[in-house]
Design a protein around this nucleic acid. Sequence first.
DNA 1: TTCTGAATAGTCAATATTGACTATTCAGAA
DNA 2: TTCTGAATAGTCAATATTGACTATTCAGAA
Lengths: 167, 167
Amino acid sequence: MERELLLLGLLRQMRMYGYQLHEFIERDLTTCTDLKKATTYFLLEKMAKRGWISQTEEREGNRPPRQVYEITPEGEQVFQRLLRENLSSYTPVRFTDDIGLAYADAISPEETRTLLVQRRAAMQQDLEQARAIPVHEGSIQLLLDHRVAHLEAELVWLDRVIEHFSK
Amino acid sequence: MERELLLLGLLRQMRMYGYQLHEFIERDLTTCTDLKKATTYFLLEKMAKRGWISQTEEREGNRPPRQVYEITPEGEQVFQRLLRENLSSYTPVRFTDDIGLAYADAISPEETRTLLVQRRAAMQQDLEQARAIPVHEGSIQLLLDHRVAHLEAELVWLDRVIEHFSK
DNA sequence: TTCTGAATAGTCAATATTGACTATTCAGAA
DNA sequence: TTCTGAATAGTCAATATTGACTATTCAGAA
């Protein structure tokens, strides 16, 4: 239901069409979810069927008509419920990158170390990118802080791991 | 491909049947992935078709026959490739729980705070559970350390967030 | 001996997700 | 004016994932 919450929350701020929603999520909400375009359209269709959102065909200039989505009162109810559910509960993060670590004994410590140093560089770069994002207003800033805090902790941990494979 | 790496890595240590693999993953590798039973069987079937693993029907006592899976030389090649790929690359973590935070302005700071305090309790409990796990040997310990380090950083951040909604 | 509920081992139809494609518009270069 | 490649807006068939179910065995209680 997180993806639904995500879409409802955006539509709550303003009516939008699928492409627009996907663009926005890709640009500003990648830390929360990885939502592909086709999935976006699928979810919008589903939520429209359930009456959470309404769709209106609209055309602008010469462009072909677009489905513009708007949240319904029922959708607002669902949003309120999902929001409280989300805020009050905790979903453990999955570290898919750790799978390889579990099998690190399959190759030499030296090679593991070399590979992890590459990983570290990518992480460092991501951290720098996160730090470069200008300060946002409101609660969006919390997400940005989260990303930075998380990556800093990850780097500390990864350095310990690299150390572990350096003997 | 992470799920495939996960399964290949386990089968590399010993031949197993689907139920066994799923049990093991559920018990010891939940931090890495959330792999449902049905998906496990689907992936095993797929990898068998691709020749990464072989299946043998076996029976034990009165029980109905089971498909026992074993890694093939080709599967070992794939494992080696996937392992190096995994170790050298970095996949940003997705914080699905942050979606709600992005929309926190939809409800009062007081209620947000109350809800987040509940979340904090669940997180704290998870941390305590993580700390209670006895020390493992080898690289599995790295994953446990990771979980603890991560949760500690998360708590620090969440406390700042709760602070933010306490004014 | 019979019953019951947990553990074992899986299947299947419904649902969700994705990569790769189509089709149009538009801005600016040639 | 024509061409080209990026941006816009979406679709669709193939693939992956899941919840809810079936079916058997087994240990111990009654």
